[in-house]
Design a protein around this nucleic acid. Structure first.
Length: 426
RNA sequence: GCGGUUGUAGCUCAGUUGGUUAGAGCGCUGGUUUGUGGUACCAGAUGUCGUGGGUUCGAGUCCCAUCUACCGCCCCA
């Protein structure tokens, strides 16, 4: 046991039980994105370090990415996020792609951090982005898609919430406090991000450490406590208005504390959370109007969000929203009466498949009880038996496990009979 | 990088102030039932007690180290 080679720290082995849950999430993500006309795409999972160096968070690139040299001596990184790859790909084709560009993606990402609850080193992330339009409708649409997915899996707005803020608004307000240089503003944004994580005293000390006066710190505090601040930002007023029309306004709240860590955000920023506050952010996103130009392309504006698979899975499990799913994808288990009847079972399985059913055959002539037990255990709804009596009569025994309903039907009618059983309730 | 918790059967765990052959439930195998699973009853198999050292007449239990997973901090796309 202890000699089995271990998996890499922070990775998860997707055994079928877990894989089914991931696929379940993926299906809901796909449905939500496609409902709004988004196209699926994918980027490479390794990129040059250079791609991230400019615009992602500094900590992210320097300390939390898997960076290594390839055999040619080039520095490459396992992608820690998708948006820079998106910007790069858009930049390459920005003149030929019809706008708005509506794309979604789901794939693996890596961050070299200490694994904890809701955080792994390899994780899967759903990205939805709309580029080539500055309309606030795009910001709201992106937000609505995230909510759509959460609704699809059974969440309601009393459990989850999306906090919203505007980088432009905060920029303006911070400038009004007398912080105008770029680095100073970035430091204040980080300070805002920390307000919920430290005591008021510590937070004040932290602010003083940044060189802020106590008047400035108190001003900032008042700012963050102001629930109506959004009314001073036309983009937020409009944003909430569009959400109203899209029918999802109840999921959203203004929150001045939300600024998000990424450096490239320029406008609306958002963060999905559980209202109970027991978990990390479910998704995060915002508008990034300069990113495509920053990787060398024409100016193409964009807005998007990313949802990791880990936190949403934890919360969905917590609220009992993940359905029980059968292990086997088969609708029918063809049993084997004894070794002599194996050919008859194989032929029957072939015919059932030809009739459009998914079929597992039991590969050994063990006693029927064992075969039935197996079929029930892996979640196959129907079992069939072809024994000597059936063979002589040209029939098969068809049984629905759920209610033990069993009937003998002519072999030629088996497909219809099974579909009938599958389509009626036990 | 810092602090803490943890590790005993396939799984979830119990195991007294250190004491002789390490237990339970679930699961698994067989049987009650040689053409039929979910319940019930009967029987059975299964352990380098994470790893390496140390203390002791004696260690699953105490000490040290180490690894793993987990929980915080840091950071967070």
């Amino acid at each position: 046991m202890s000699s089995i080679i271990r998996p890499v720290k922070g990775t998860r082995d997707f055994y079928p039980d877990l894989m089914r849950k991931r696929t379940w999430l993926y299906d809901h993500m796909r449905r939500a994105a496609e409902a709004y006309g988004y196209q699926e795409w994918e980027a490479p999972i390794i990129e040059t370090l250079e791609l991230y160096a400019a615009k992602s968070g500094e900590e992210l690139v320097k300390e939390q990415s898997f960076v290594f040299e390839d055999r040619g001596g080039n520095e490459v990184t396992l992608r820690p996020e998708l948006t820079p790859s998106l910007a790069r790909m858009i930049a390459q084709k920005s003149r030929e792609l019809p706008k708005p560009i509506r794309w979604w993606s789901f794939g693996p990402f890596w961050r070299y951090e200490r694994p904890q609850k809701g955080r792994t080193r390899e994780f899967f992330q759903w990205n939805v982005d709309c580029l080539g339009t500055s309309s606030i409708v795009a910001d709201a649409e992106i937000a609505a898609i995230a909510v759509q997915m959460l609704r699809n899996i059974g969440f309601t707005s009393d459990k989850l919430v999306v906090y919203v803020n505007s980088r432009q608004l905060m920029d303006r307000k911070i400038a009004e406090l007398g912080v105008s240089d770029k680095d100073g503003k970035a430091a204040v944004l980080r300070m805002i991000d920390k307000i919920d994580k430290m005591s008021r005293e510590k937070w004040h000390v932290y602010g003083e450490g940044l060189g802020l006066s106590s008047a400035q710190i108190e001003g900032l505090e008042a700012l963050l406590g102001n629930k109506d601040l959004w009314q001073e930002a036309p983009e937020l007023v409009e944003f909430f208005g569009v959400l109203e029309n899209l029918g999802v306004r109840d999921w959203f709240e203004y929150n001045a504390n939300i600024v998000r860590g990424l450096n490239y955000y320029t406008g609306v920023v958002m963060e999905g959370r559980d209202r109970a506050g027991d978990h990390r952010a479910i998704f995060g996103g915002g508008r990034y109007d300069n990113l495509v130009a920053d990787v060398g392309g024409d100016a193409v504006t964009g807005v998007g969000f990313a949802m990791g698979d880990v936190v949403i899975s934890l919360i969905a499990e917590e609220y009992g929203l993940v359905p029980q799913m059968a292990s086997s994808s088969a609708q029918v288990l063809v049993t084997v009466f004894d070794a002599e009847h194996m050919p008859a079972s194989l032929k029957l399985a072939k015919e059932l498949r030809a009739g459009g059913l998914t079929v597992e055959i039991y590969p050994e002539a063990v006693k029927l009880a064992k075969q039935f037990k197996y079929g029930d255990k892996v979640g196959i709804p129907i079992g069939v038996v072809v024994g000597p009596d059936d063979l002589a009569a040209g029939t098969v025994a068809v049984k629905r496990f759920a209610d033990r309903k069993q009937m003998n039907v002519a072999q030629t009618d088996a497909v219809d009979a099974i579909f009938e059983l599958l389509n009626t309730n036990a």
